[in-house]
């Protein structure tokens, strides 16, 4: 029976769908648009603004910088100053702060690697049932406040603190060591706070490692250490690089740890940026410092993204 159903005019909903589809806003396109627009507005554009303000002139007012382009006598006047950048190169303070930040971040990353590698290795070679809980133990401190964990070290490291009391009572030292408010405390603080970030990528590569390779090496008579150095270590290189960058990059710009654990002479660039912004209210110079710091970090960030991207492409494939 070929009874024709009455043709109803398209409902409002259907018409709306057709319109959005024509605009490419439906499904895929719509999903892409949301996060994409958000990141362009709140991540990409802000950096362009930092770049712009780094060449503006400081001024008294709100906001405390001049406009780059102004109408003067019927013509456009473009005012670009490099005074912010000039100060970076003329004032030893900033150069020293950059170098010291790189040094502190490098040493702390190395400490994280030396402590984190055996830990990741031990978890990856533990019986499968125990790996989950062990990994949980590594992640757990990360869930408690970062600020509070740094604070905990203040009471451990101070002159009459727990570490000094312990060493004194054991007779290892005879007068308290000055650790808090020195670079040493900053090394300890960064290593402690960033250790989980080193262990997780290391574990991820070590866990995937093909254990038959090690067995083959052992069968062929390689000692465990030799097998480790010639097989495990080179194969875990992606994890080492990812973990190191995950520690190094944020550590270069670290602010909280040097200002709570470091001394007044612990120069770090994140701290100088903070002081320029909050104490001197010199926004253009703070922006110049940020741009210069970013220039240092662009290389490491791109390498990090390359490793991040490899995992992502595996997902896309």
């Amino acid at each position: 029976m070929a009874a024709h159903l009455p043709v109803r005019p398209p409902s409002l909903k259907q018409r709306a769908l057709a319109v959005t589809r024509r605009l490419g806003l439906t499904g895929r396109g719509g999903v892409i648009l949301g996060p994409y627009a958000w990141l362009v507005l709140f991540f990409l554009v802000p950096f362009l603004i930092v770049l712009k303000i780094s060449v503006a002139e400081p001024a008294v007012g709100i906001p405390p910088f001049t406009k780059l382009i102004e109408w003067v006598d019927g013509g456009l006047d473009l005012k670009i100053r490099f005074s912010g950048f000039q100060a970076l190169f003329e004032d030893d303070l900033y150069i020293l702060a950059y170098l010291n930040s790189l040094k502190i971040a490098f040493v702390s990353t190395l400490c994280c690697l030396l402590i984190g590698y055996p830990m990741a290795y031990a978890i990856a070679t533990a019986p499968e049932k125990r790996r989950g809980p062990l990994l949980m133990l590594i992640i757990l401190p990360f869930w408690t406040s970062f600020l509070i964990r740094v604070y905990a070290w203040m009471s451990i490291l101070k002159d009459e603190g727990l570490l000094n009391n312990l060493l004194l009572s054991l007779g290892i030292i005879h007068e308290p060591l000055k650790i808090l408010y020195t670079d040493w405390a900053v090394y300890i603080g960064i290593t402690y706070s960033y250790l989980p970030f080193m262990i997780l990528p290391l574990y991820a590569t070590l866990e995937k490692l093909d254990h038959t390779l090690l067995e083959a090496a052992a069968d062929l008579g390689a000692r465990p250490w030799k097998a480790f150095l010639t097989i495990t270590l080179p194969l875990s290189l992606p994890g080492i690089i990812a973990g190191s960058l995950l520690v190094f990059i944020p550590a270069v710009g670290e602010f909280v740890i040097p200002s709570l654990l470091g001394g007044s002479d612990t120069l770090m660039i994140g701290r100088e940026l903070w002081n320029l912004f909050f104490n001197s209210r010199d926004w253009p110079s703070a922006s110049a410092v940020a741009i210069a710091l970013l220039a240092f970090l662009v290389g490491p960030i791109m390498i990090f993204q390359h490793f991040q991207g490899r995992d992502q492409d595996k997902g896309a494939a």
Partner: peptide, 11 residues
């Protein structure tokens, strides 16, 4: 994930 917070905050 890695960007120093002072840069993100300022930007």
């Amino acid at each position: 994930l890695v960007m120093p917070e002072v840069i993100m905050g300022l930007a």
